[in-house]
């Protein structure tokens, strides 16, 4: 059974540590990346089904990650997670092809729901919220 490939990018290590287990439990193959520059390399080398990215990161922003992911594959669903959410940022993200956006702090279950929705849309029918 093929698992959806998921990349989670956040320069704050705690975020990845907190979310990884839950996302794997859904049935995703999860890669965590704290360095956005390295994340861009990963995105260019491998087609991820779902990319979850923070926005405010040193040197490279989540918007750049979003653009890179959508350039690498228009099929990739990019979910934005940010502590600096505004209506303008949300609109910019949607215009650049984001799948969805959640403001931090959020409940991990809310993110999992979004991941399930995205994965099911991509044809991963075995994935479901626990």
């Amino acid at each position: 059974m093929k698992k959806p490939e998921l990349l989670l990018i956040d320069d704050e290590p705690m975020v990845g540590q907190r979310l990884k287990g839950g996302l794997e439990k859904l049935g995703c193959a999860v890669e965590i990346c704290e360095d956005p520059a390295r994340a861009l390399d990963l995105i260019r080398k491998k087609n991820f089904d779902i990319v979850i990215t923070d926005v405010m990161m040193p040197e490279i922003s989540g918007m750049q990650v979003l653009e890179a992911a959508r350039t690498a594959s228009t099929q990739t669903r990019v979910i934005i997670i940010t502590g600096f959410a505004t209506a303008n940022l949300a609109r910019e993200a949607m215009e650049k092809g984001a799948y969805d956006m959640i403001a931090k702090p959020f409940k991990p279950a809310d993110l999992r729901k979004l991941v399930v929705k995205a994965a099911v849309e991509m044809g991963y029918s075995d994935i479901k919220e626990y």
Binding site: A87, A90, E95, G97, A98, D100, M101
Partner: peptide, 14 residues
């Protein structure tokens, strides 16, 4: 019709 005006989790939570 522009994508920027589509509802999303953030705006629904708002």
């Amino acid at each position: 019709k522009q994508k920027r005006f589509e509802p999303m989790t953030y705006s629904m939570n708002c």
